[in-house]
Deep mutational scan, measured.
Amino acid sequence: TYYTVKSGDTANKIAAQYGVSVANLRSWNGISGDLIFVGQKLIVKKG
């Protein structure tokens, strides 16, 4: 599943929404920190 980042989103918020850990969200998308951008497409695997 892909999720498009919206204004006000955070890695924590997206992870919680899908029931996954922030560490997994980072791993699936090659993100090292919490910096995400509006319009960015993230791979999300439901927990």
Rank of each mutant, 00 (worst) to 15 (best):
G19R: 07
L35N: 14
Y18E: 06
L42A: 01
S27C: 14
N29Y: 02
R26M: 15
V5S: 03
G8D: 06
N12K: 14
A23T: 10
S21A: 07
S32L: 13
T10H: 04
Y3C: 08
Q17M: 15
F37Q: 09
G33K: 07
K41C: 13
I14Y: 00
V5R: 00
V5K: 00
A16T: 10
I36N: 02
G33C: 08
K41W: 06
N12C: 15
W28F: 04
A23W: 06
T10E: 05
N29K: 00
Q17E: 13
D34G: 08
R26K: 13
V38C: 07
T1H: 13
S21G: 05
K45I: 11
Q17I: 13
T1P: 10
A16L: 12
N24C: 15
I36D: 02
G39H: 04
S32A: 12
G19M: 07
G30T: 07
T10Y: 03
S32G: 09
G19H: 09
V22C: 06
S32D: 14
L25V: 05
A15F: 02
V38W: 04
I14F: 01
S32V: 15
K46A: 14
D34L: 08
K13F: 09
L42Y: 00
K41D: 07
T1L: 14
V5D: 02
I31G: 05
T1Q: 12
K45W: 12
V38R: 05
K6A: 09
N24G: 05
L42I: 09
N29M: 02
N29T: 01
G47L: 12
V38Q: 07
W28N: 03
F37S: 09
T4F: 10
I31V: 07
V38N: 05
K45F: 14
K46F: 14
G47E: 14
Y3R: 01
V20E: 05
I36T: 04
T4M: 08
G19D: 09
D9Y: 00
I43Y: 08
A23L: 07
L42G: 01
V22Y: 03
S7F: 14
G30S: 10
L25M: 04
I43T: 06
Q40Y: 03
K46I: 15
V44H: 00
Y18P: 01
I31T: 05
V44R: 00
W28M: 07
K6M: 11
Y3N: 02
N29D: 01
V5Y: 02
G39R: 02
K41A: 08
V22L: 13
G47W: 11
G47H: 12
I14T: 00
K41R: 13
I14C: 00
Q40D: 07
F37N: 09
V20Y: 02
L35G: 11
S7I: 14
D34R: 06
D34H: 08
T1M: 14
I14E: 00
T1N: 11
A16S: 10
K6W: 03
A23M: 08
T4A: 05
V5N: 01
G47K: 10
T10C: 05
I43N: 04
V20L: 09
R26G: 06
S32K: 13
A15K: 01
K45M: 12
L25R: 00
V22S: 05
N24V: 11
V44Q: 01
N24F: 07
V38Y: 05
T10Q: 04
S27D: 15
Q17C: 12
